[in-house]
């Protein structure tokens, strides 16, 4: 028996919109810790890890660990039927091949339930070790989205370089080149507008912009994004989900041929 009641149902809607471009089908794992997902994109270039901690739900019942395979497009179709202010409850029974999403309007005058078919998904679970990163950049998520969008009109890849001067995003394409430098500005009045750069060692890595742009679908989840970089390791692009957890995207770098 599984029953998860999320008062801020819009969070689940935003989570789905954040990941469904990258991943088509995925297993949602439910345990005492929370509701989580780990999945690679079909090319095995990027990985998404989601955690919604049990404490963040108003009611969280999960009698035993359960894994539910879902089509994220179908799940998104159902969650789009929930109002932004609705309370969403996810219900499942042991051995059942369906999951139910219940939507309650804030005034309790409209209650809907949508039953979705589950699917069997073979997926490998990867162990992600804790790593010390050479550089950690925190910046407004909307600014990062703007930079990825702007650069992708010039080139296909972005070089992210961190020095003590700040973080530089560069691209080149047939029509020319572009460089955008963001400097640390932690003295701004609003913390959500701050850019901070922690650097232990200078880093410079190349990534496909197509994936970076896909990660920025998570922008509505958080005002800030954290980009963790180490030479020759995947970048981690993290959007924290207020009080509940995170969506983390891992992207393998491109290297010189």
């Amino acid at each position: 028996m599984l029953e998860l009641r999320l008062v801020q149902g819009s969070l689940l809607k935003k989570v789905l919109e954040a990941i469904r471009e990258l991943v088509n089908d995925a297993n949602f794992d439910c345990s005492a810790t929370g509701f989580s997902l780990q999945a690679m994109d079909s090319s095995h270039v990027a990985l998404v890890a989601l955690l919604l901690r049990s404490e963040g739900f108003e009611h969280y019942r999960c009698d035993r660990n359960i894994s539910m395979g879902m089509s994220l497009n179908n799940m998104a179709k159902m969650l789009r039927c929930a109002g932004n202010d609705d309370i969403i409850t996810v219900k499942g029974d042991d051995g059942s091949d369906t999951v139910t999403f219940m939507f309650e309007s804030p005034t309790q005058d409209k209650i809907s339930d949508f039953e979705m078919k589950l699917m069997d998904i073979d997926s490998e679970h990867l162990g992600i070790p804790e790593a010390e990163y050479h550089a950690i950049v925190r910046m407004p998520s909307a600014e990062f989205a703007r930079i990825c969008k702007d650069l992708s009109s010039i080139g296909d890849t972005v070089v992210i370089s961190v020095t003590k001067e700040g973080v530089k995003f560069s691209t080149k394409g047939d029509i020319g080149t572009a460089n955008i430098v963001c400097r640390q500005n932690s003295s701004v009045d609003k913390p959500e507008e701050a850019t901070t750069v922690e650097m232990n060692e200078p880093v410079s890595l190349t990534f496909a912009l197509r994936y970076m742009n896909s990660f920025t679908k998570a922008t509505p989840l958080s005002n800030q994004v954290t980009i963790s970089l180490s030479n020759e390791l995947p970048v981690v692009v993290e959007y924290k989900i207020a009080e509940m957890g995170y969506v983390r995207f891992y992207l393998a770098p491109k290297i010189e041929e």
């Binding site: 679970h125 891992y250 290297i255």
Partner: peptide, 14 residues
């Protein structure tokens, strides 16, 4: 533009 590495090179299957 460089050679794209795969993500599963970096993590082990658990």
């Amino acid at each position: 533009d460089g050679y794209q590495l795969n993500i599963d090179l970096f993590f082990t299957i658990t």
